[in-house]
């Protein structure tokens, strides 16, 4: 049962960095969209070009955060109710031996060194640091209640963790593994996303319905982005997933039960547009060239595909029960 798309992706990786290769791979768009289904206890695998469901892989209990390994051959999965990180081999779609995670891993991030996972342990107010090769927890940092989002600076120096009930973004020094600053943000912070240039950290607040833009040097909130959707009660406008283009021109913010994704001009922090997607839109992921953005819609059990240059929603396709996380494998 060979998968021509996966093979094509492997073939593309082998090519030298040539214009012709970029064109060939771009045209083929042999990308795979991977979605974690929180209630379905599975990973949905879709072909990005057609958005056809290729397969559904059963994994551990309550899979939420998912991250690709640096070589793109493994998907790390927070199996929250199994208290472990599942490792899915993306060539064979078989589960490898799981990694330890600390209690109730909800969300995590891969350090730029490719060797360490930083895991938010929602139940015991810790960030656990896991060495992937050694398969063990090599550090813990005490943070606020219900740690949730993890964002690591592009240079790997700073870890930002949000705590949902403490309402803070904690800045952790990666060398000393100590909290060096706590930035109070609006209620129930969720994601912490660094801009590609490392100059800003964007933190979404679910209940507060806002995004705080933080200067990582001064730890000051430099901008606060608020959202207003005509016809939607302001309480239903809740900010969760964030995706920022590498050139820092555009940002997308998932607005949860408002069922919309806000398009923000990342230069002046103004909201340009709201795109209607599925119900309870939660997390976002770009494809490799940032021409497409995928959203998980937890209540309508589907994902939506957004055309980034045109800023419009192309289609929504069903996945498993309660889709939560999404990544795109090149």
């Amino acid at each position: 049962m060979p998968f021509p798309l996966t093979d094509a992706a492997a073939w593309c990786r082998l090519l030298p960095f040539a214009v012709i290769a970029a064109l060939a791979c771009g045209a083929a768009r042999a990308e795979t969209v991977l979605v974690s289904n929180e209630k379905g206890n599975s990973i949905s695998v879709l072909d990005a070009a057609s958005l056809k469901l290729i397969r559904t892989v059963p994994v551990g209990q309550r899979p939420r955060g998912i991250v690709l390994s640096r070589d793109q051959h493994t998907l790390y999965i927070c199996a929250s109710d199994d208290d472990e990180i599942d490792q899915l081999d993306l060539d064979t779609y078989e589960l490898k031996q799981p990694l330890p995670s600390g209690a109730d891993p909800e969300n995590f991030a891969l350090h730029p060194d490719g060797k360490h996972l930083y895991i938010a342990n929602e139940d015991n107010s810790l960030v656990s640091i896991v060495d992937i090769e050694q398969r063990r927890v090599v550090g813990e940092v005490a943070v606020g209640i219900e740690p949730e989002g993890i964002g690591i600076s592009p240079d790997g120096r700073w870890i930002v963790n949000t705590s949902e009930t403490t309402n803070m973004a904690h800045f952790i020094d990666n060398d000393t593994r100590k909290v060096v600053a706590n930035v109070l943000v609006d209620s129930r912070p969720r994601r912490a996303v660094w801009t590609a240039d490392g100059k800003e950290v964007w933190v979404s607040s679910e209940i507060g319905g806002s995004v705080s833009v933080i200067d990582p040097e001064t730890h000051a909130i430099t901008h606060k982005i608020k959202f207003e959707v005509a016809g939607v009660p302001k309480e239903a406008v809740q900010a969760v997933g964030i995706a920022i283009t590498r050139d820092r021109k555009l940002a997308f913010v998932a607005l949860g039960p408002a069922n919309r994704v806000a398009v923000v001009d990342a230069a002046n922090y103004e909201v340009k547009k709201y795109l209607l997607v599925g119900q309870r839109v939660w997390n976002l992921a770009f494809n490799h060239d940032e021409s497409r953005l995928y959203t998980t819609n937890g209540v309508s059990n589907d994902i939506s595909e957004i055309d980034v240059p045109d800023l419009r929603v192309l289609q929504s396709v069903p996945v498993g029960a309660e889709p939560w996380g999404v990544v795109v494998r090149p």
Binding site: S125, G144, I145, S163, T165, T166, N167, M168, H170, V179, N182, L184
Partner: peptide, 10 residues
């Protein structure tokens, strides 16, 4: 307890 978890940062 919850108040104090936040309080130790503030």
């Amino acid at each position: 307890d919850d108040d104090n978890t936040t309080g130790r940062f503030t």
